[in-house]
Computed example of a mutant assay.
Amino acid sequence: MKSRQDIDNALSAQYALGTLRGNARLHFEKRLAQEQELAQQLGRWQTLLAPFENSTQPQIPPERVWKKLELSLPPQKTTASIWNWNYLGWALAAGLAAIVLVPYFTSRSPELSPLVVLNSSDATKGQWIVNADSERKTLQLVPVQPREIAANNSLQLWAIPSGAKPISLGLVNASQSTQLTTGNVALSPGTTIAISLEPQGGSPTGQPTGPVVFSGTL
């Protein structure tokens, strides 16, 4: 019999893939707003699957690739054998795989892991999962139950060191994953990560001017 943890892991994977539907999806989203461990588990799956989202595009192999494949094949016989056709298929597949996968592996993003969950004072408004690389220089913000905001507003991310003024880390897309860099801002323990509702384009003063709608402390 599968444990509850195994079931939650499977549900998180299905949700991240977009295959969890109907009442099961609605029930899962309600649990996300209440169970931080489940939200972190979902964040791990979203981080794992993120590099594969729109990461490859169809490409036509250049002529030199076909020439190289032709030269690597054994001399053609008058009566082609099944083995020759299998070899040709394997060679073509290997060549095409190299064309598609080499750019992917050479341009992969840093490996990210869950850093903190940003909660709202109103549990019905969802959460944000913040993932980071090992040096906390790259952040990925993933909305859970994303909500639309007015066209004349923007969401802005802030780092608030203990006893210091907020430092802007950039604007956040309200409805989908956003990746930002922290620059020279150190995200040390005790730092609060917050999202405020600002005028379109961000705060005009360099400090939060609107309400803080999500926050969490490292």
Rank of each mutant, 00 (worst) to 15 (best):
A98M: 02
P114F: 12
A24I: 00
D122S: 10
H27Y: 04
Q207D: 15
Q36L: 13
P208E: 13
V100A: 14
A91S: 10
F105P: 10
T106H: 02
L155Y: 03
D133G: 10
V144F: 02
T192L: 01
S107M: 00
L42D: 10
E135C: 05
N131T: 09
L11H: 06
L92A: 15
V102W: 05
V116H: 10
H27M: 08
V144I: 09
T79R: 07
N153E: 13
A10W: 07
I129E: 06
Q40R: 07
P51W: 03
S109H: 06
A194M: 08
T217F: 13
G170Q: 10
N131E: 13
L112I: 02
A174E: 08
F105G: 13
E70W: 11
L197N: 11
G210H: 02
H27I: 13
A24R: 06
V116R: 09
P75Y: 02
L157D: 08
Y87D: 14
L139M: 05
E63Y: 08
G216W: 01
E35A: 14
L96D: 09
I167C: 04
E111M: 05
W158D: 11
S109G: 10
L42V: 15
G210F: 01
S215Y: 12
K165A: 11
S162C: 10
I160D: 02
V130S: 04
S215M: 09
E35K: 10
I99L: 15
V212D: 09
A93W: 09
I167V: 08
S113I: 07
N173V: 04
P62N: 01
A33N: 10
S3Q: 11
Q127W: 12
L169G: 00
